[in-house]
Protein backbone atom coordinates (compact mmCIF):
# COMPACT_ATOMS: atom_id res chain seq x y z
CA UNK A 1 0.00 0.00 0.00
CA UNK A 2 1.31 3.39 -0.99
CA UNK A 3 0.00 6.77 0.01
CA UNK A 4 0.96 9.66 -2.22
CA UNK A 5 -0.58 12.68 -0.58
CA UNK A 6 -2.92 13.95 2.10
CA UNK A 7 -5.17 17.00 2.01
CA UNK A 8 -7.46 18.87 4.40
CA UNK A 9 -10.09 21.38 3.35
CA UNK A 10 -11.95 23.50 5.89
CA UNK A 11 -15.61 24.43 5.76
CA UNK A 12 -14.77 27.59 3.82
CA UNK A 13 -13.50 25.29 1.06
CA UNK A 14 -9.89 26.39 1.56
CA UNK A 15 -7.07 23.91 1.59
CA UNK A 16 -5.57 24.20 5.08
CA UNK A 17 -3.07 21.37 4.84
CA UNK A 18 -1.42 19.51 2.03
CA UNK A 19 1.26 16.90 2.33
CA UNK A 20 2.85 15.13 -0.58
CA UNK A 21 5.23 12.26 0.02
CA UNK A 22 7.84 11.16 -2.42
CA UNK A 23 8.58 7.52 -2.03
CA UNK A 24 12.35 7.91 -1.95
CA UNK A 25 13.21 8.77 1.60
CA UNK A 26 15.87 11.38 1.93
CA UNK A 27 17.94 10.30 4.92
CA UNK A 28 19.49 13.75 5.27
CA UNK A 29 16.30 15.62 6.01
CA UNK A 30 14.39 12.67 7.49
CA UNK A 31 11.20 13.82 5.86
CA UNK A 32 10.51 13.63 2.18
CA UNK A 33 8.18 15.43 -0.15
CA UNK A 34 6.50 18.74 0.47
CA UNK A 35 4.30 20.32 3.12
CA UNK A 36 1.82 23.01 2.15
CA UNK A 37 3.72 23.59 -1.09
CA UNK A 38 2.80 26.69 -3.06
CA UNK A 39 3.07 24.61 -6.22
CA UNK A 40 0.19 22.48 -4.98
CA UNK A 41 -2.26 25.36 -4.58
CA UNK A 42 -3.82 24.85 -8.00
CA UNK A 43 -3.98 21.10 -7.56
CA UNK A 44 -5.70 21.64 -4.24
CA UNK A 45 -8.39 23.71 -5.91
CA UNK A 46 -8.88 21.12 -8.65
CA UNK A 47 -9.03 18.29 -6.15
CA UNK A 48 -11.52 20.15 -4.04
CA UNK A 49 -13.64 20.83 -7.13
CA UNK A 50 -13.68 17.16 -8.06
CA UNK A 51 -14.51 15.99 -4.54
CA UNK A 52 -17.19 18.60 -4.16
CA UNK A 53 -18.86 17.74 -7.49
CA UNK A 54 -18.77 14.01 -6.89
CA UNK A 55 -20.06 14.40 -3.36
CA UNK A 56 -22.99 16.40 -4.70
CA UNK A 57 -23.75 13.69 -7.24
CA UNK A 58 -23.53 11.07 -4.50
CA UNK A 59 -26.00 13.04 -2.40
CA UNK A 60 -28.39 13.75 -5.24
CA UNK A 61 -28.55 10.18 -6.50
CA UNK A 62 -28.18 8.27 -3.27
CA UNK A 63 -29.71 10.26 -0.41
CA UNK A 64 -32.64 8.58 1.27
CA UNK A 65 -35.07 10.30 3.63
CA UNK A 66 -33.49 8.38 6.49
CA UNK A 67 -29.86 8.71 5.59
CA UNK A 68 -27.46 10.88 3.69
CA UNK A 69 -25.31 9.14 1.16
CA UNK A 70 -21.56 9.61 1.50
CA UNK A 71 -18.80 9.63 -1.08
CA UNK A 72 -16.06 7.20 -0.07
CA UNK A 73 -13.60 7.24 -2.92
CA UNK A 74 -13.06 7.68 -6.62
CA UNK A 75 -10.46 6.09 -8.85
CA UNK A 76 -8.74 6.58 -12.16
CA UNK A 77 -6.47 4.07 -13.88
CA UNK A 78 -3.54 5.51 -11.91
CA UNK A 79 -4.64 6.31 -8.38
CA UNK A 80 -7.48 6.24 -5.91
CA UNK A 81 -8.71 9.21 -3.88
CA UNK A 82 -10.26 8.52 -0.48
CA UNK A 83 -12.64 11.04 0.98
CA UNK A 84 -14.06 11.72 4.41
CA UNK A 85 -16.24 14.61 5.46
CA UNK A 86 -16.84 15.38 9.12
CA UNK A 87 -20.27 16.53 10.27
CA UNK A 88 -18.68 19.92 10.92
CA UNK A 89 -17.76 20.27 7.27
CA UNK A 90 -14.07 19.47 7.46
CA UNK A 91 -12.98 17.41 4.44
CA UNK A 92 -10.03 15.07 4.36
CA UNK A 93 -8.63 13.34 1.33
CA UNK A 94 -5.86 10.82 0.69
CA UNK A 95 -4.48 9.91 -2.71
CA UNK A 96 -3.17 6.35 -2.80
CA UNK A 97 -2.32 3.61 -5.27
CA UNK A 98 -5.09 1.36 -6.58
CA UNK A 99 -4.17 -1.53 -4.29
CA UNK A 100 -5.26 0.54 -1.31
CA UNK A 101 -8.99 0.12 -1.31
CA UNK A 102 -10.45 1.59 1.80
CA UNK A 103 -8.98 4.24 4.06
CA UNK A 104 -12.17 5.40 5.78
CA UNK A 105 -10.93 4.23 9.18
CA UNK A 106 -7.60 5.94 8.70
CA UNK A 107 -9.23 9.21 7.62
CA UNK A 108 -11.55 9.12 10.60
CA UNK A 109 -8.57 8.37 12.84
CA UNK A 110 -6.62 11.33 11.54
CA UNK A 111 -9.66 13.50 12.07
CA UNK A 112 -10.48 12.38 15.59
CA UNK A 113 -7.08 11.48 17.01
CA UNK A 114 -4.85 14.03 15.33
CA UNK A 115 -6.91 16.97 14.08
CA UNK A 116 -9.31 17.20 17.00
CA UNK A 117 -6.65 16.44 19.61
CA UNK A 118 -3.86 18.66 18.36
CA UNK A 119 -5.60 21.44 16.48
CA UNK A 120 -8.99 21.81 18.13
CA UNK A 121 -7.86 21.14 21.68
CA UNK A 122 -4.68 23.15 21.22
CA UNK A 123 -5.44 26.70 22.34
CA UNK A 124 -2.41 28.07 20.50
CA UNK A 125 -3.71 26.90 17.14
CA UNK A 126 -6.59 28.51 15.30
CA UNK A 127 -9.57 26.32 14.43
CA UNK A 128 -10.90 28.72 11.86
CA UNK A 129 -8.24 29.35 9.27
CA UNK A 130 -8.01 32.62 7.39
CA UNK A 131 -7.76 32.25 3.61
CA UNK A 132 -4.19 31.37 2.78
CA UNK A 133 -3.21 30.29 6.28
CA UNK A 134 -2.27 26.66 6.81
CA UNK A 135 -1.64 24.19 9.56
CA UNK A 136 2.07 24.54 10.35
CA UNK A 137 2.06 23.10 13.81
CA UNK A 138 5.02 20.73 14.11
CA UNK A 139 3.42 18.13 16.32
CA UNK A 140 0.49 17.75 13.94
CA UNK A 141 2.85 17.35 10.97
CA UNK A 142 4.90 14.76 12.83
CA UNK A 143 1.87 12.72 13.88
CA UNK A 144 0.33 12.72 10.41
CA UNK A 145 3.67 11.70 8.91
CA UNK A 146 4.07 8.90 11.38
CA UNK A 147 0.55 7.62 10.74
CA UNK A 148 0.25 8.00 6.96
CA UNK A 149 3.75 8.60 5.64
CA UNK A 150 6.07 5.98 4.15
CA UNK A 151 7.45 3.71 6.85
Amino acid sequence: MTIFSFWIFDRHCNCIYSREWTQVLNPATESSGTINAKANEDNAKLLFGVLFSLRNIARKVGDTPEQENTLNSFATAKYRAHFYESPSGLRLCILSDLETQNLQTQLRDVYSNIYVEHIVKNPLSPVDFKPGSKITNQRFIRLVDRYLGPQ
Binding site: H118, K121, N122, L124, S125, T136, R139, F140
Partner: peptide, 16 residues
Protein backbone atom coordinates in the same frame (compact mmCIF):
# COMPACT_ATOMS: atom_id res chain seq x y z
CA UNK B 1 -0.15 18.35 26.83
CA UNK B 2 -1.66 19.55 23.54
CA UNK B 3 -0.22 23.05 23.37
CA UNK B 4 1.77 23.53 20.19
CA UNK B 5 2.07 26.85 18.40
CA UNK B 6 2.02 26.95 14.60
CA UNK B 7 5.08 29.20 14.80
CA UNK B 8 7.77 27.45 16.83
CA UNK B 9 8.72 26.13 20.25
CA UNK B 10 9.78 29.53 21.51
CA UNK B 11 6.39 30.95 20.62
CA UNK B 12 4.71 27.97 22.28
CA UNK B 13 6.58 28.61 25.52
CA UNK B 14 5.92 32.34 25.34
CA UNK B 15 2.17 31.81 25.03
CA UNK B 16 2.00 28.98 27.57
Amino acid sequence: QRFDSPVDLQDTIYKC
